[in-house]
């Protein structure tokens, strides 16, 4: 199963699939790739799931590139927000378990794009807390390999 099939088979987001990086709106400029033709689509999870999971700590976006799924949270990257982002990740993982996207687990990674300056030292405990959770260290711009 690929990303497009998985989205189609997940009723919560079936109608939210968009071409390329379109679902990321103004944040699409924060994603770069040397192979844009290999972008398979994106979903604005936050907006799409707002009605059904109104008060949940919803994750922002999902996109697929070269058969890898990138779950992206656009969020201020300060020390006080580490716990907030991890709470969102935990919610995302719980939600994914009940979707067809769970079958793509082996190709998935979790990324934090900072809305502004990153103020977390790579040698601080916050950096290790993030690593332990599985979320990559925050970046201003995410390059898709």
């Amino acid at each position: 199963m690929n990303f497009l099939d998985a989205v189609h088979n997940t009723p919560d987001i079936t109608n939210c699939l968009q071409a390329g990086l379109k679902a990321l709106g103004r944040y699409s400029t924060r994603i770069t790739t040397s192979q844009p033709s290999l972008l398979e689509g994106s979903v604005d999870l936050d907006n799409c799931l707002k009605a059904k999971y109104q008060n949940a700590p919803r994750w922002d976006y999902a996109l697929s590139h070269k058969s890898s799924v990138y779950y992206i949270e656009v969020h201020p990257a300060s020390t006080s927000q580490v716990k907030v982002v991890i709470a969102k990740l935990n919610w995302l993982k719980g939600w994914l378990r009940h979707t067809a996207l769970v079958n793509l687990k082996g190709q998935s990674s979790y990324h934090w794009i900072s809305t502004d300056k990153v103020t977390i030292s790579k040698r601080s405990k916050y950096s290790r807390i993030l690593a332990k959770s599985g979320v990559k260290y925050p970046v201003r711009v995410l390059h898709l390999g």
Binding site: S80, K117, T119, I120, S121, K122, S124
Partner: peptide
């Protein structure tokens, strides 16, 4: 020291 730097800079910038 790194943790404290992160906390203080985070607070100042954000």
């Amino acid at each position: 020291f790194s943790t404290k730097v992160s906390e203080i800079i985070s607070e100042a910038i954000w």
